[in-house]
Design a protein around this nucleic acid. Structure first.
Lengths: 328, 328
DNA sequence: GCATAGAATGTGAACGATAACAACGTTGGA
DNA sequence: TCCAACGTTGTTATCGTTCACATTCTATGC
């Protein structure tokens, strides 16, 4: 920086002003400094800046290191959005979403003096790790515990599940079965609630809940049961993978989809359109959720205040394909 | 740090020594200092350390912001491995793997003074962005250009494709068709080479190459063609998603798998076991590749030298399920 | 008993930026 | 004409570490 100042014939402070786009720098010197910067190939040292300002243009993200479609899409969308605003994203991935792992990941981020923190904490128990956070660090939770007081962005699971269930009822099915996700996931719980409430509102019977774990394997297992029950004509699965396993089980038992059994999934994975048959499903808008999260986080970072109450909910949309038909 | 020193009754330099586990600190003072650190809840400032040492415990990763199974699994595996060694991972994701985007992402990382760089550059043209790198930054390329001189870790695509093709030939099929990935991906090109060489070595005829783009959609499109050709009895697809689309197309045309047509995929996505029928496929070992990459990178970081020639190849394994049978 | 090596600790400078304040020059109004 | 205000630039201190070097103390060998 001193070299740049010398070359441009100004003081280092003036160079700093140009760098930070301060006002009160004459156009003439600004140009001289920029020329010197270019000539020397100078680039500012972020560490030094972080040291004196006490903050950095880095956002820390805590997320589970999984290949589940929802969380990983969310993460990708957030990274992209953050990058567009000039913030770097530091991902501290954890293997399990238990309290200790999350607390450790948060510690690592605080060590790095991140400007703000985003936690993708879709399971119960994860939120406790955020209780003892220093109270001056901006935080946004995505898909976190709705009961806990914090800035929160969630996909509206209940709404999406209602849409799926109502779509099946509207096709003429007397009732709709459900294979859920893991019970400690808020997403899964919300989808169960939406399914139940849609059935209740329609005056339909509520069949027993079958529980899965997001995997195709769990869809297959539950499918082997469902395939033998002739009264099952419509199933809403907690995600598309479960639907895939269910499709295989029904196929093996000679029950055709959608002629004998109708199915609606959740997530709209890219392959859903190429299941046999193409799957009707619910598509969450990850980009919108990422944008909302970033907006709430930046608002805190810029204002220097910490917000613990704003909620933002993103409504998913039903994508109709060929896996739903009226009952025989 | 001064506060800790005062409380422990030592100098700030001694605190620094304890922190960095220097020798020549007596057990007694070490304990005093540790106690003071704990009591004050002190944590060292990474920015200050980075400023004076000129490096940080952060590894920069450049990767495409996609949900493709291969790259994203690779990324997840690498993050986990890096974390275990105390390095933070900073992901600079790019939307497209063109030269300019990659160069920008690399610039961002250099700004942050990363200790080393990992580039997941599976497509042709991406490597050019790394030509003008400052020559003192440790670099490992994953799935990059085999022609370009640099430290490189790759999954052995040729080997995997040979295994898949040979498995189909061994089942008695006179020849094997192939739906490839995008031609500018090294992975795709390697799989094509492996397929061709296996056919050639077996003295089998080499059918025309069909080209896809990793998506189920492209598998479906090509499948509509293949389904009408009675001589097609065996297909090796460049990945599992393509196989899924192909399955749907064959199904729609009344051709059964594996009775009429046998299929082998690549990737072993978690759902492959629940396709209808369960898919025989090739599984790359992402953890091994990640571990190898990290090892090569750390070797450079620790030694302070830059390596541009080491190659490491990871052999994938065939996973046999139910999508292959002898021809009718 | 004394020089000496080496272990344990302390002192001051340095890393590269920004913040706070001072100083200078120019403009405009009384 | 003079002073106030403001726009522009420079000077110095500071952030929290590590590095290089200085110092003190203890043990060892002759």
């Amino acid at each position: 920086m001193m070299d740049v100042a010398r070359l441009a014939g100004v003081s280092h402070q003036t160079v700093s002003r140009v760098l930070n786009e301060h006002k009160n720098v004459s156009e003439q010197t600004r140009l001289k400094v920029r020329a010197a910067i270019a000539e020397l190939g100078y680039r500012p040292d972020r560490a030094a800046r972080a040291l004196v300002t006490g903050t950095s243009k880095v956002i820390g993200v805590v997320a589970q290191n999984s290949s589940l479609f929802g969380p990983s899409s969310m993460l990708a969308a957030f990274e992209e959005a953050a990058q567009a605003t000039g913030f770097a994203v530091n991902v501290g991935s954890v293997r399990n979403l238990d309290e200790r792992s999350i607390a450790e990941a948060v510690e690592r981020h605080l060590d790095q003096r991140v400007a703000g923190l985003v936690v993708l904490a879709p399971v119960a128990g994860a939120g406790a790790a955020l209780e003892h956070l220093p109270d001056d660090v901006p935080l946004v939770t995505i898909d976190g515990d709705p009961e806990r007081a914090s800035t929160l962005v969630t996909v509206d699971q209940v709404f999406g599940a209602r849409a799926a269930t109502e779509h099946l009822l509207a096709a003429g099915h007397p009732s709709v079965w459900h294979i859920s996700g893991p019970s400690d996931w808020f997403d899964a719980a919300g989808r169960v609630r939406g399914w139940e409430s849609a059935l209740k509102d329609a005056g339909a019977e509520i069949p027993p809940l079958l529980s899965g774990d997001w995997s195709a394997a769990s869809g297959y297992r539950n499918g082997q049961l469902l395939a033998r029950l002739p009264e099952v004509t419509a199933v809403f699965t907690a995600n598309d993978n479960i639907a895939l396993g269910l499709l295989r089980a029904l196929n093996e038992h000679g029950r055709r989809v959608p002629e004998d059994v109708s199915i609606v999934g959740f997530d709209d994975v890219p392959e859903a359109a190429y299941f046999t048959p193409p799957l009707t499903t619910v598509r969450p808008d990850f980009d919108a959720a990422a944008a909302a999260s970033l907006e709430l986080l930046l608002a805190q970072i810029e204002s220097g205040t910490v917000d613990t109450s704003t909620r933002r909910t993103i409504a998913p949309a039903l994508v109709v394909r060929d896996s739903v038909a009226p009952p025989a």
